[in-house]
């Protein structure tokens, strides 16, 4: 890929072009809101140590209602506490780190596996396609959560296992999308031109085809990120997520909702956190799609 770039003087570096492309999102207010939410949570995750009023695992007044003062009177439990007296706000702030680490990582891994599979299936077709598509169909025929439960039940609950499970379950979906795009793009004349000058199959897939599929793939990645956030939350809710005591949004919901009879608001806050992040990704995807369809 690099040798394409060097021979001719370029006005713009690829990085600059990427940033410029990203700036197009300004034309869609939906996308801007989405981007805003994501940037907000990213900042929260980065500065969690500064922003959180309490250490996330520090016990205090149990099941304190939102707005009550801590035992020593030095702080306020803005969003209340859980049954061990840990501050919900601090745990949400620290929990964003887990989500924003594992969700992008898992999505990236799914693409890393799914893209080559989709390229090979769509470009080579024939037996390669049949075999790869069949494997994908088998995995996709599991209801997702059933698959997660089996995998986690087998290999145990941990951050890296979540990444493995998400990769295993999502890569076939990525493969299908890439395959569909490649089936369309492989009939373009510039691909034909590359074939007639004897380029290797992988070069054609990676240099001639893949860059032209980037638009729909970026949109899909955003949607998938949102879905992975939901998945991680759901696994946490079912007790199959990250092992305690580190804060995990889904796990917090499942703990706090048991005390809804005491105060139904306690469980609402982590739900808002997770829903807003998913919304951010979904809105960004919508905005990107809108902008890409404009020209």
């Amino acid at each position: 890929m690099t040798d394409q770039a060097v021979s001719v003087p370029r006005r713009e570096s690829p990085l600059l072009r990427f940033v410029k492309g990203l700036a197009l999102i300004r034309e869609s207010w939906v996308g801007m809101i989405g981007l805003g939410i994501i940037v907000f949570w990213s900042l929260v995750a980065i500065f969690a140590d500064i922003l959180a009023p309490f250490p996330p695992n520090q016990p205090g007044l149990p099941l304190a209602p939102p707005g009550s003062a801590s035992l020593d009177g030095l702080g306020v439990y803005w969003l209340g506490t859980d049954q061990l007296g840990r501050d919900t706000l601090s745990r949400i702030i620290h929990g964003s780190r887990q989500v924003l680490l594992y969700a992008p990582l898992a999505t990236f891994c799914a693409y890393f596996v799914g893209i080559p599979m989709g390229l090979a299936a769509g470009y080579r077709r024939g037996l390669t396609d049949d075999v790869l598509s069949f494997i994908a169909n088998v995995i996709l025929s599991f209801p997702v959560l059933v698959l997660y439960i089996i995998i986690i039940a087998t290999i145990g609950a941990s951050g890296s296992n979540i990444v493995i499970a998400v990769t295993f379950a999502s890569a076939p979906g990525v493969m299908r999308i890439v395959r569909g795009l490649v089936l369309d793009l492989r009939n373009r004349e510039y691909v034909f031109a590359a074939e007639t000058r004897g380029e290797s199959a992988w070069r054609i897939m990676l240099v001639e085809i893949l860059p032209n599929a980037r638009g729909p793939l970026i949109v899909d990645a955003c949607l998938r990120l949102g879905y992975v956030v939901i998945t991680i939350g759901t696994l946490g809710f079912l007790g199959l997520g990250l092992p305690p005591p580190d804060p995990d949004w889904g796990g917090m919901v499942s703990e706090l909702r048991q005390f809804a009879i005491v105060d139904p608001m306690l469980a609402v806050f982590p739900c808002i956190a997770i829903s807003s992040l998913v919304l951010g990704f979904n809105l960004l995807a919508d905005g990107l799609r809108e902008v890409s369809l404009r020209d």
């Binding site: 809804a260 609402v268 739900c271 829903s275 919304l279 979904n282």
Partner: peptide, 19 residues
Amino acid sequence: TSVPEFASAVFLSGLLVFT
């Protein structure tokens, strides 16, 4: 579609069961 099932379960029960 941005609200996971467990979250809307919490929201709805908060509203229709407790409030």
